Amino acid sequence: MSVHDDLTSVQRCLDDLTRSVSRLEQQLGSGGLDMRRVRADADHLRESVQLLRAAASLQATPAKPELVTIPDTPYDPKLWTDSDDEGLGARDRHAP
């Protein structure tokens, strides 16, 4: 199964859980600590699955790399006045 199918299956199970918790609340009342805890846990699971679904959709679509435009104009020669030519040595010295 794919991740999408698994998440859909989990969502269906959570929907069933939410309906069951609602029926229990009608039968037992929603004022008890245990019932509030079960409701909070079910809500927390629903939020967690939504986060998983969002994370899975981000991973499924690879981000396009940002394109950087490099101009065709030559660089300013003043940028290179304090550097040596790579591989050629310093200007006032000769290679061995």
Results as ranks from 00 to 15, higher is better:
R23A: 15
A90W: 03
A56V: 02
D6F: 04
S83R: 13
G31W: 02
G87E: 01
T81A: 12
G87S: 06
K64F: 03
E86S: 09
H94T: 09
C13T: 10
L17P: 01
D92Y: 05
G31F: 01
D6W: 04
D6I: 11
T8C: 06
D82T: 08
Q27E: 14
T73D: 08
R19Q: 13
E66K: 07
D92T: 03
D72L: 10
T73C: 08
D6Y: 05
A42N: 05
G32F: 01
G32A: 12
L17V: 13
G31E: 13
D76Y: 04
Q27S: 13
E47K: 14
V49M: 05
D82H: 07
D16R: 10
A63G: 09
L88S: 07
P62R: 10
V3E: 14
R39Q: 15
G87R: 05
H4A: 12
D34L: 14
R36K: 15
G32P: 02
R19F: 06
V10C: 08
D6K: 12
L51V: 08
D15Q: 14
K64I: 05
E47W: 06
A42H: 02
G31Y: 01
D72Q: 11
R23K: 11
A60D: 12
L33S: 14
A60R: 04
L51I: 06
T69P: 06
T18W: 01
D15S: 11
R12S: 14
L17C: 13
L7T: 02
S30V: 09
